[in-house]
Design a protein around this nucleic acid. Sequence first.
DNA 1: GTGCTTGTCAAGTGTTCGATTGAATAGAAG
DNA 2: CTTCTATTCAATCGAACACTTGACAAGCAC
Lengths: 226, 226
Amino acid sequence: MGDRVAKDALFDGFARITKALSSGRRSEIVDLLAQGERSVEEIASEIGQSVANTSQHLQQMLKAGLVRTRRDGNRIYYSLAGGRVLDLWAAVRDVAAEHLAELDSLAAAYLGDRSALQTISRAELVDRMRRGDVVVLDVRPEPEFRAGHIAGAVSMPLDELRRKVRGVPKDREVVAYCRGPYCVYADDAVRTLQRRGYRAARLEDGFPEWSRNGHPVENDVDSPAS
Amino acid sequence: MGDRVAKDALFDGFARITKALSSGRRSEIVDLLAQGERSVEEIASEIGQSVANTSQHLQQMLKAGLVRTRRDGNRIYYSLAGGRVLDLWAAVRDVAAEHLAELDSLAAAYLGDRSALQTISRAELVDRMRRGDVVVLDVRPEPEFRAGHIAGAVSMPLDELRRKVRGVPKDREVVAYCRGPYCVYADDAVRTLQRRGYRAARLEDGFPEWSRNGHPVENDVDSPAS
DNA sequence: GTGCTTGTCAAGTGTTCGATTGAATAGAAG
DNA sequence: CTTCTATTCAATCGAACACTTGACAAGCAC
C-alpha cells in the first residue's frame, strides 16, 4: 500500500495548511485579510495582540502559503495568497456552523440576538438592485469600501450612519452589508435604521462572498485581487 | 469593536474545526472516511497507527463534529458528519496544491511520476460514457465499490486486475478511478494497462468527488450518505 | 551620520499535543 | 457468570505551540 513514510509526509503537508488556520487568532487574520491587504500593525490592533506575536502568526501563514507580502516604504502589507484561500475559509465557517455543537452559543454571545434582523440573499439583492427599489449601504470602514465594494453601493461607516441617517431616503428599503457573516457592523446598522422607522435588511454574508461569487464589484483605487 | 473576549471565543470555535484537521494522521482519516464508514481497527491499520492512538484522534474529530459514530454489535463505525466536510477537505487539498511550496515534491515522492498518465475530466467521462466508448474500472477494494460507485463502472481491485487483464476488452479506452486525487490505485492500474497495450486513462480525482458533484452513482447495499 | 518607525528574530515560560503503554469498559458469545 | 473482542480512558514523556520580552534590521526623515 504505497510508501508509508511518503504518505505520512504528504498528509503532514496537507495538515500544514490546516495548522496555519488552527489558531483562533490566525482565523481572525484570514477573516480580516479577506477585506484586503493590511500592515502588521493594523492586523495586530484588529486581533488585539502584540505586534511581535502577530508577526509570528503571519510568518507561519506565510510559510504555509496562505498569505503573501508586499513592502511599501518601511511598512509590510499582508494579503491572502489567492481566492481559493477564501473558499477554504468559507468552508471552515460552514462546517463549524453546521457541525460544531457550541458554535451557536459562541456566535450568539458575540453577535447578539439576530432573530429580529431581516436578511436578504445575494440573488435577491441582484434582482432588486436591477429593479432599483433598494438603497445598498456599505457599513465597513471607509478604506475597505475604497479597496472594493458592491457595484452601486454607498459608503456609510457606522459612526457616519448615526450622524447622517436623515440623508438616507425613506421611500426604499435599505440593505446593509459588511465584512462577512460573523461581522457585527451590518447588524448594528440594520438595528439603528429599524429604530428610526426604516425598512432595513442585512445582506447574507458580506463583501468577500459577494465578490467571490462573481457579482459586480467596483473599486476606487486599484488593489490586488486574485 | 464588539466584545474582544466573545470574538476570540467565536474564532477559537472556528479554529476547533481546523485543529481537528491539523494533524497528518487525522487528514488521512478524513480522506479514508470519504470512501464510507470504517471501524476503528480498520482505520488504525490504514493509517499505520495503534488502535488507542487512532481512537483518540477519532475522539477529537468527534468533539469537533467532523465525524459521527454508529454502533453495530461490539464494533463502532465512524463516518464523516456530512457532505460539507468533504467540501472542506477538497478545499484544503486545493489550497495546498496551489500555495504550499513543497507539496509538489511530497506528492511526487508518494505518487511517483505522473507525467505519462493520461487523465480525463469528469465532464468528459460523462460524455464518453453516454457514447459508450469507454470501460470504467473501479480499482478500489471491493467493499468500497459495494458501498457506492460510479454508475456503470465495473469493480476491479488492483490484485484482481493483474490476474484478469485479459478479460478487459481492448477495443475501447479504459478509464480507472479510485479514492481521490492523491490515491495511487488508479495510477497503478493505468500503468499496468498501458504496459499491456491498452489505451488507459485516469479519472481526475476519485469517487467522492464524482459523487459530490452530483454525477450518477450506484450502490449494492444501502449505506449512509451525506 | 542620528533618530524614529515598522517588523522580524531569538530566548524563555507555561500550555497543549501526539504517541506509547497499560488498565478499564461495553457488548457478544459461550 | 466468565471470556473474548473492540474500543476508550488515564498516565506519561518529549516535542511543538502561543505569547512575552528585549534585541536587532531596514527604510525613511532630518
